Simulated scan of single mutants.
Amino acid sequence: MCVMEGSGSGWCDECENGSIWTDQLLFSRTELAVVTALCVPLLLLGLLGNILTILVVWLRPQMRSTTYLYLSSMAVSDILMLALMPLDLYKLWWYRPWLLGDAVCKLSQFVSECCTFSSILHMTALGAERYLAVCFPLRARLLVTRGRVRALIGGLWGVAVLSSAPVMALVGVERVGGGDAECRSTQFAQSSGLMTAMLWLYNLYFIIPLALLTLLYGLIARTLRQRAHAHRDNTHRQTLRMMVVIVLVFVLCWLPFHVGRTLFSLTPEPGAGLYYISQYLNLVSFVLFYLSAAINPLLYNFLSARYRANVRSMLHLPPGPATELRHRAHPSLSSTHF
């Protein structure tokens, strides 16, 4: 994730008094050390949690519901994003000269954008699937099958790849300033209007799915309120609760990035104050970006008794106290909770 590209400005390699300078803004080594100290635990926890999510879905047959097929695919996306963290930390500390070549510059940004688009598309598709399951259960049984969901997941990744393809022309290695190579937005992207077009694409990928998910989850909540309480509806409520939390966390993690980039890009001649705000929003969004990739398994564990029980079983850990009590009270329901 090239958080500084959104501002249309690169880094300078001039370091004085233990600090790293941008064109107008100073990031101290202390600030960068804090960012690094926050991100490294996220890398370890995120990789462990997302790998466990994939394993528990594919090794435990009772976890291969259509919902968890989406979540395991999202876990793949999160792993790929987290795998790019060392490279992004390298960019933060030693942005210039760029020593890793043009291919690494382009591919790292492409993979980052592709995974971001993929996660958004997965959340939107899962929201639509939940809407069918709750509001049109008979139709959902015919339309929503594991085979079709697997095919749809492949299609979502295809759309994400196509949407991210322009990034290959958006960034590249160019020589600036004193002749040092830098991985940055290209002059072609800025002069041709490609950067502006991609900015609008990023914002549409954020705004439209958010609007659709708000509508779908609102309709689901209304339908559940109108129906008599039943065990299946309780399961739907648990699923809805978890998905709403996942979407809200995603929005909170990405909102500073979109606000900062849009605020700066739409201002014809941003002053030093606006540049300062934009760049520090980018620094905050750097941490939030990786938080969004690492936190989902923790949310599953906290909100889903089914996920929690199957992870403990896969790791040969004793069941938690709540699971034991529920199993003793309702043995037939112990595996049905989302």
Rank of each mutant, 00 (worst) to 15 (best):
M74F: 02
S304C: 15
V149D: 06
A133K: 09
G155I: 03
L47T: 11
Q62H: 13
L100F: 14
R148N: 13
P270N: 00
G177Q: 05
D88W: 14
C114D: 00
Y202D: 11
Y300R: 08
F264R: 04
R306A: 13
V111Q: 02
Y300V: 10
A169Q: 08
N17D: 13
H337R: 10
A125H: 00
A33I: 05
Q190C: 02
L80D: 01
V171D: 01
F206R: 12
M63W: 07
T145M: 07
G320K: 06
V56I: 10
D78G: 00
L252H: 07
G49M: 14
S185G: 07
V104M: 14
G172K: 01
R225P: 00
L291A: 14
M85Q: 14
Y205H: 12
R227M: 09
L26G: 09
L55E: 12
R225Y: 02
R225V: 02
L288D: 01
E113W: 04
V149F: 06
S334A: 14
M198P: 00
E182R: 02
V284S: 02
L298T: 13
S265L: 02
H122M: 05
H258I: 07
H327G: 08
S191K: 08
L59F: 09
L266M: 07
A75E: 01
L283F: 00
D102K: 05
L288Y: 05
F264M: 09
E31K: 09
T66L: 06
I51K: 14
F117W: 06
I277T: 09
D233H: 14
K106T: 04
V40R: 01
V161S: 08
L219T: 10
Q24T: 15
E174S: 06
